[in-house]
Simulated scan of single mutants.
Amino acid sequence: MTDERRREAAVYLPALAHPIRRIGARTFDFERQVAVMAVVNRTPDSFYDRGATFALEKAIEAATRAEAEGADWVDIGGVPFSPGPALPVEDELARVLPVIEGLRAVSNVVISVDTFQAEVARRAIAAGADVVNDTTGLHDPALAEAVADSEATLVITHSLASPRTQYPRPHYDDVAGEIAAFLHSRVELAVSLGVPAERIIVDPGHDLNKNTLQTLELTRRFAEIAALGLPALAAVSNKDFIGETLDAERGDRLEGSLAAAVFCIVQGARIVRMHNVRESVAAVRMTEAILGFRQPAYTRHNMGDANE
């Protein structure tokens, strides 16, 4: 597509250095594909589900249901991002490893572990995780070393606070530019520690140490994150910037979440992290078709001698 046609379509198609990614048992072509990452939190205090999948059987059931509803990827977390007391590594492992093992035993879906602990990353990869999703931007560089010693992919997310600590009144002079620069520097760090660039994904961290106005601007300017040349992840689902924008409680943010995800896709996002899997998969697949990435499931309307 020419630059002129890109402008006409108001769509940003990022030039990716390594668009074809083998992640676990699956291959993604991020020039023509958007992956849907489902969320399973094995925590009693997650911001959205408030412990609905804390029980082991509920967590595994949610993970297998997400795949059945079309998710390409399941993200399993044992510790929320929000401020709170530190959870011992062994306790975090006790939460996430049984879910990873249970899901891997029945599925080849991509599995990521949401952690900032290097030991959790190592043990999760050994249990079958394909991705380490670090929401602290490599606060501990040892986590990158743990990924480097494996075949796993690393998600580097922008945030400013030390893990599980407060960060009141975040300030940015240029929110998207500063986040892009941060991610670029952390990618360089990960590469220096042995993680190949073709196994790195970036996430600007919607709402993470950002207020609603900052997150809305970041979303408008998502193309600046995608321009880093690595597949960009948008974790927008049910977040507070949607609730504050629409005056919507946690259980009433689906439509806003879908709108934010679709906008990020047309600005270059190639993975979206979503709670409501069935609805999100439909929105993503429709967006892919509009962008010309996929063909319709079938074509009958006005295709014959008689109108249907």
Rank of each mutant, 00 (worst) to 15 (best):
Gly70Pro: 06
Leu143Met: 10
Ala223Cys: 14
Thr43Gly: 04
Val132Arg: 01
His18Ile: 08
Pro14Val: 07
Ala126Leu: 11
Thr157Ala: 13
Val99Trp: 03
Thr287Glu: 02
Val195Pro: 10
Ile201Phe: 03
Leu189Phe: 03
Val96Arg: 01
Val131Met: 08
Thr2Trp: 07
His158Gln: 06
Ala223Met: 12
Ala124Tyr: 01
Ala283Leu: 05
Val39His: 04
Val202Gly: 01
Glu119Gln: 13
Val284Gln: 02
Leu183Lys: 02
Ala121Ser: 05
Met303Tyr: 15
Leu258Met: 11
Leu56Cys: 14
Glu178Phe: 04
Leu246Thr: 15
Ile201Met: 10
Arg164Tyr: 09
Val96Met: 07
Pro231Ala: 11
Ile290Gln: 07
Glu224Thr: 03
Pro168His: 08
Val147Phe: 05
Ala297Cys: 14
Leu138Lys: 06
Glu198Thr: 15
Ile76Lys: 01
Pro231Phe: 05
Glu308Thr: 11
Glu61Asp: 13
Lys239Phe: 00
Ala261Trp: 00
Leu228Thr: 06
Ile242Ala: 04
Asp140Cys: 10
Val106Trp: 09
Gly205Phe: 02
Glu151Met: 11
Asp91Gln: 13
Phe30Cys: 07
Leu216Gln: 14
Glu249Asn: 14
Ala235Trp: 00
Pro44His: 10
Thr27Asp: 13
Leu16Lys: 01
Pro85Ala: 12
Thr2Ile: 09
Glu8Ala: 15
Gly128Cys: 12
Ala232Val: 08
Arg164Ala: 09
Ala176Asp: 03
Glu61Met: 10
Leu138Cys: 11
Thr135Pro: 13
Ile242Arg: 02
Arg186Met: 09
Ala269Pro: 02
Ala235Gln: 01
Ala62Asp: 04
Val109Ser: 04
Ile225Val: 14
